[in-house]
Amino acid sequence: MPDFLLMAILAGFCVTLVTGPLGCFTVWRRMAYFGDTLAHSALLGVSFGWLLSINLNLAVACGCLVLAMVLIFLQQQRVLATDTLLGILSHSTLALGLVIASQLENARIDITSYLFGDLLSVSIADVITMAVVSGIVLSLLLALWRQLITLTVHEDLAQVEGVNVKAVRTVLMLSMALMIAIAMKVVGVILITALLIIPAAAARRVSSTPEIMAVMASLFGMMAIVMGLGASFYWDTPAGPSIVLGTSIIFILTLFKKVVLSKSSA
């Protein structure tokens, strides 16, 4: 196997390790649009990173974090409905990112690689960064797992039962921001949400507990990485979109299976 393919697979696996459980929370908490908004703001992070010449991964993570904080703040003001708010932020940040990027004259900034990912060009340094970030996010999720699930079931109930709702919710948003910083390389900002939602939706059909669903979502994500990279290697298709198509195929296959723990009796 060529080195670049091995690196790509390793990088993809690091990312899908966290997109599995985070994707589950995205569908359980109906945060798909939130994920989209964060991802779009990542491009703004890239542009600013270039402008200020700081590490791009760091810039993206910071950009997402700032946006997440702004969102939490605006949500508490309750001036606009959350989905309107997300729509405004999502598209404004994406547009601003594109405009700034176009004005960076001597920057050899390749917009398409950020929009659609560039998995086949990851270096060993990238893989190490991804592994570290993914390790941090996974340990955060594991440490707070029960509280995260309780929060997802009912926030007030969680708080009455002693969960620090604000802190746990912030950790979840932080994890999302970190995840986007590393997932951008794999599928690009446009398709990150797909990598979150589709494997989780497929996993739902074969899982009887939240934990199994999170693990299955990661496994499905890894399968899609292999499928997408395979297609890219043999047929020269773009890697990011091929991976997303891989998740779609897995989802369609799970449709033939009866859902575990659902209205089967009805």
């Binding site: 569908v27 359980w28 908490r29 109906r30 699930i149 997802t152 079931v153 009912h154 007030d156 109930l157 009455v160 039962e161 989780a200 939706a201 739902r204 899982s207 009887s208 507990t209 939240p210 199994i212 669903m213 575990v260 723990l261 659902s262």
Partner: peptide, 14 residues
């Protein structure tokens, strides 16, 4: 505490 209702999403196997 018993809240008015839960909003558990259909996608959560619980």
């Amino acid at each position: 505490y018993m809240p008015q209702k839960l909003n558990i999403d259909n996608t959560m196997p619980l």
